[in-house]
Design a protein around this nucleic acid. Structure first.
Length: 457
DNA sequence: GCGGTATTAGG
DNA sequence: CTAATACCG
């Protein structure tokens, strides 16, 4: 009786799952395996908010497998050792998994391939599970990857995506195979209070609601901080409880600017994945070295601490930082404002900001987070690397009524309208009533510092 | 078919 | 300012 293993990583779903489909097609019994990989924690990647969401995803995956006659097998340790142990216990002839793009994922694939070859077990790595279009599937004429988004977007759109694969009706799992208890969200401590529930069922319900009543307004509404009119699907896409291929198909079914803008954002995600796949070092090193001499933890300790705590004195920045800490999620416009302020105005190393975001974001993704930070810092793929976002103007433009600031900065909740964006304009007596910090930096001085630093290069 | 160069366009 | 491509010798 043939047995295959499906190693789940960032693809915690049963719908549109080619590795699972392939395993079921070739084997009588399949081991759906998740390894809580020690190396993930060792790489500093095990943040409470993500662990809590991950626990939900695994619980839901186990439940969905049980509805189909199977179950999830959970192990802990080094992923290569654990897969090897399951191969030894079951005599499995093949392991199926999704391709990853990071240096971590590429290394994991290499190590698995070598270890499984010794056991006479095949490793099948499937593309288009984590991304809609595989990294390297479209390339420029002279190069291994696209460095500018728009040409990539054109080619990506022409390329199209593979068909959606149906979820299996039954999954037969070998009996007697040891598994740890599936982790529960309650096991995780120090989770932000607003972290949403995870899991494929929740994700699919949310997707259906988004397609029915959210996506049509996305082109107009995506930058509206207070309106909160984005999909909020990013955690589900990050953990793979939603398939980007399925998202492209289902969002693309309807015409109009909303669906097109949404699919374009999915393309941004693939774009960053193909950059990182070709340049894994860009996770922590400048994609383009612009000779920046960023300020670090020592030189800018007070500024960095104020930024992290949401006490910079710039309401739009502080609202964003507090939303991040509370929800483990942040509106995209809030990410841009907070990141531009740290890197361009305070001239602090983008890695410090990227690390803080990774500590909190449920959707914290090595490709998207790091390359978006590089984009903002001007070391990445922005074609205008010197762009600086003014946090006051950004606040007035994207939160014109000030409702977003009042929601997240209660010290300013009594101020009406757009006045919340400039609390320093109040008279001394009024200001004394609000326990809110003075701006930690003069925007003009910050701009001058940045220009001076960049002009040296 | 290649390498250099002009053109276009870019979150 | 520069990637990507169209163009040309």
């Amino acid at each position: 009786m043939a047995t295959s293993i499906v190693l789940f990583t960032a693809d915690l779903r049963l719908h549109d799952h080619p590795p699972l489909r392939a395993a079921l097609a070739e084997a009588d019994e399949v081991v759906p395996l998740f390894v809580r990989d020690d190396n993930v924690a060792a790489a500093g990647f095990a943040a409470p908010n993500r662990l809590a969401f991950l626990a939900d995803c695994l619980t839901a995956l186990d439940a969905a497998l049980r509805e189909r006659g199977g179950r999830l097998v959970v192990r802990s340790g080094d992923v290569v050792d654990q897969v090897g142990a399951v191969v030894a216990a079951t005599g499995a002839g093949a392991v199926h998994m999704a391709a990853g793009v990071s240096g971590f994922a590429q290394d994991r694939e290499r190590r698995l391939r070598a270890a499984l070859a010794e056991r006479g077990c095949a490793l099948h790595v499937h593309d288009c599970v984590v991304t809609a279009v595989a990294p390297g599937a479209v390339t420029p004429a002279n190069g291994d990857h696209f460095a500018v988004f728009t040409p990539y977007y054109r080619r990506w759109s022409q390329q199209g995506v593979r068909d959606v694969v149906a979820a299996p009706r039954t999954v037969r799992v070998p009996s007697g195979l040891a598994s740890e208890r599936v982790p529960a969200r309650a096991d995780v401590r120090e989770v932000s209070p607003g972290v949403p529930p995870g899991g494929e069922a929740v994700a699919r319900t949310r997707l259906a609601a988004w397609l029915r009543s959210g996506i049509a307004g996305y082109a107009d509404g995506h930058d509206d901080l207070a309106g909160d009119r984005t999909s909020r699907l990013s955690p589900h896409v990050h953990f793979g409880t939603l398939s980007p291929v399925e998202l492209v198909h289902r969002a693309g079914k309807t015409d109009g600017p909303g669906p097109a803008a949404f699919v374009r954002q999915l393309c941004w995600r693939d774009f960053h994945h193909q950059v990182l796949a070709a340049r894994p070092r860009a996770a922590w090193a400048d994609y383009r070295d612009r000779q920046d001499r960023w300020r670090g933890e020592d030189e800018a300790a007070d500024d960095i601490e104020a930024w992290r705590r949401g006490r910079t004195g710039f309401p739009a920045v502080d609202a964003a930082m507090r939303q991040l800490a509370h929800e483990g999620w942040l509106h995209n416009r809030g990410r841009l404002i907070a990141a531009s302020f740290l890197t361009k105005t305070l001239y602090v190393d983008w890695r410090i900001g990227a690390r803080h975001f990774l500590r909190h974001l449920v959707d914290g993704d090595i490709a998207d987070n790091q390359l978006n930070w590089q984009w903002t810092a001007g070391t990445g793929n922005d074609t205008r690397p010197n762009r600086v976002l003014n946090p006051v103007l950004q606040g007035k433009r994207h939160d014109p009524e000030g409702a977003y600031v009042r929601r997240w900065v209660p010290e300013l909740a009594e101020l009406a309208g757009a006045a919340v964006h400039e609390p320093w304009r109040l008279t001394g007596l009024e200001r004394a009533r609000f326990d809110y910090p003075e701006p930690i930096v003069d925007l003009a001085e910050g701009l001058a510092r940045f220009r001076q630093a960049r002009d040296r290069s």
